[in-house]
């Protein structure tokens, strides 16, 4: 159907934007089906005031993350990655590592067109795995869990530090200078300052490292440019 060499934008990016938009926006009404069913079948509906109060409470906790998390991850995920990651969730522990490992294995650079396709496929693979596991868990649940040996259950507590360590190493090898900077900033914010909310720490870590990268790579090409403020 494609065969002729159209532009990458027309062949990939534009269709992805269309699909991404309708899938995410359609997920909004779909999310309310269980709530509506409880109302319709059991007459279980809180008052409007209760719903608004609960909404206000939850937005005061996560509201900033609605836009700060997508913005912070955008330089990593790109367009297609953002649509996928913010529909399916599990961003830091699954989507980002899987996208990056896929790029590394296939041997393509991030932030290139081939890198975007490979990352999209890597994430799609991880989404399918996740859906399968989540479905098995929902059906088999606690029965399956009881079949895990205790040592495995204990070891699974350490999946997160392992995956974050591995992910960090992939890029630390390529950009050791930024790696040192990133660890230094994170250690200062988490170990010395301590009081900042999580979303702000993430934003500061991500954007100060980006700022540092822009600053140091611009220095290579021209002295005219000013460094940007974070």
């Amino acid at each position: 159907m494609n065969a002729q060499k159209g532009s990458f934008d027309a062949e990939f990016t534009q269709p992805i934007i269309r699909t991404g938009m309708w899938t995410l926006l359609l997920a909004v009404p779909f999310s309310f089906f269980p709530a509506l069913y409880l109302w319709w079948q059991y007459g279980a509906i809180p008052t409007v005031k209760t719903i608004l109060t609960a909404w206000f409470m939850i937005v005061s906790i996560y509201g900033v993350e609605y836009f700060m998390t997508p913005i912070s991850y955008f330089p990593i995920l790109g367009i297609s990655g953002t649509y996928m990651a913010f529909l399916s969730g599990n961003i830091a522990n699954m989507r980002v590592p899987c996208a990056i490992v896929a790029q590394q294995v296939v041997g393509v650079e991030p932030a290139t067109k081939e890198g975007e396709i490979v990352a999209t496929l890597g994430m799609a693979g991880s989404i399918i795995t996740n859906l399968i596991v989540v479905t098995i868990a929902a059906i088999g649940g606690s029965y399956l869990l009881s079949m895990f040996p205790p040592i495995i259950l204990e070891a699974l507590n350490y999946v997160l530090p392992s995956i974050f360590g591995g992910l960090f190493a992939i890029f630390a090898v390529r950009h050791p200078k930024y790696a040192v900077f990133a660890i230094a900033i994170a250690s200062i914010l988490l170990g010395v300052i301590k009081v900042l909310p999580v979303w702000l720490v993430v934003v500061l870590c991500s954007f100060s490292t980006i700022g540092f990268a822009l600053f140091s790579s611009r220095g290579k090409f021209s002295d005219e440019d000013n460094g940007e403020t974070a």
Partner: peptide, 14 residues
């Protein structure tokens, strides 16, 4: 920028 963003976030997470 992408590399730096991964290092910034995964550095924080790690």
């Amino acid at each position: 920028v992408c590399g730096a963003a991964v290092l910034g976030t995964s550095g924080y997470l790690a």
